[in-house]
């Protein structure tokens, strides 16, 4: 017994509470150890914390300050003068900015559409096909491909006069197919189609993981009650994947604000700002017109919008999600 205890303490169950004997000495040692732990802790997290502070937190503080100035990038820092809320006021009457916000709203509207397709595909792949992993790879490929390459290919596929998409549409009898990226009322639709195409894979993989956690017995019980496939979908699948749905909705909306690369390469916000989004307009103001103050104000408004959306979502979570 004695021997086993010693053994345990040394090797097997180290989390066992310390021996009651010699309490003062132990306590002193553990305090010293705690300080050592604290230092070790700071050491381990320091690269990450320093990097984040220098590259993210300080820049945010700088953006807040610059957003209240009329600074133009090519001028020296000395030329910077404070203009109060002028930049923010101008934003409210800037038609292109407001248009970019509206375009962002359309990209958000595409998020549930993507999720719907992904869920349907996930259900089919989960139970109703052979070669499951093959299908996972197929639908995931667009997600890992470079946006630049994707944008270039779609420019050709969507080409209004000799692109394959319009050739097919004309063959099946549509005489005047849309001019896609060249037409200001279709360009955003094209961007949304590509966005859905690239993000189905990610949503699908996450939904598949969620579906695998649903117990088969639930479906068997429903079968015995004579429930049809739609009833099972509505009353078993949808409620049980709702935490995943919520997660995908949050990440999807946050990411819809980050779509920048696709728009830069595909359309440069055009034609006529019809595909400009907040981050694209911000980039254009900052790096093409060099209006640092104005573009910083756009950044801050964007951050506030994201903050509000996140807050609403966390509040909504309590209402919509069944855990």
């Amino acid at each position: 017994m004695e021997l086993r205890k010693e053994n345990n303490e040394n090797y097997v169950q180290p989390s066992q509470s310390p021996e009651p004997e010699e309490p003062p000495k132990k306590k002193k040692r553990s305090m010293k150890m705690q300080t050592k732990e604290t230092w070790a802790g700071y050491l381990f997290i320091s690269p990450m914390v320093i990097g984040t502070t220098v590259l993210v937190i300080i820049p945010i503080l700088m953006a807040i300050i610059v957003s209240f100035t009329d600074w133009v990038f090519i001028q020296g820092i000395g030329e910077m003068s404070f203009v109060g809320l002028d930049n923010y006021q101008r934003l409210l009457s800037d038609d292109i900015f407001l248009r970019s916000v509206r375009n962002n709203a359309w990209l958000i509207a595409a998020v549930p559409v993507t999720m719907f397709f992904s869920l349907i595909l996930a259900i089919i792949i989960n139970k109703h096909v052979y070669m499951k992993s093959f299908f996972k790879i197929v639908y995931f490929l667009p997600y890992i491909s470079s946006i630049v390459a994707i944008a270039i290919v779609f420019q050709l596929l969507f080409h209004p006069s000799y692109g394959p998409i319009n050739e097919v549409l004309m063959t099946i009898g549509i005489e005047n197919p849309p001019r896609w990226l060249a037409d200001s009322s279709w360009a955003l639709v094209s961007v949304i189609i590509i966005t859905i195409w690239t993000s189905i894979g990610f949503n699908l993989i996450i939904y598949l993981a969620a579906l695998q956690n649903i117990s088969l017995e639930l479906y068997e019980a429903a079968d015995m009650d004579g429930a049809n496939i739609f009833k099972k979908f509505r009353h078993i699948t949808v409620p049980l994947v709702s935490p995943t749905t919520f997660f995908l909705l949050i990440t999807g909306i946050v990411y819809s604000f980050k779509s920048f690369e696709l728009i830069v390469v595909l359309t440069s916000g055009g034609p006529g700002y019809s595909t400009s989004v907040i981050v694209y307009y911000l980039y254009e103001q900052a790096f093409e017109y060099l209006r640092s103050g104005y573009s910083s104000a756009i950044s801050i408004v964007l951050l506030l919008m994201l903050f509000i959306i996140t807050a609403i979502q966390w509040y909504g979570q309590k209402k919509w999600v069944n855990y």
Binding site: E37, V49, V56, I57, P59, I60, S296, L302
Partner: peptide
């Protein structure tokens, strides 16, 4: 590792995830 301020620092780092990279391009 247990140390003081761990959770606060972690939350702070985590919160920066929400920020789109484009929003801080100018100051960066």
């Amino acid at each position: 590792i247990q140390f003081t301020g761990r959770n606060i620092i972690f939350l702070l780092v985590l919160a920066t995830f929400m920020i789109p990279a484009q929003a801080i391009l100018v100051p960066q």
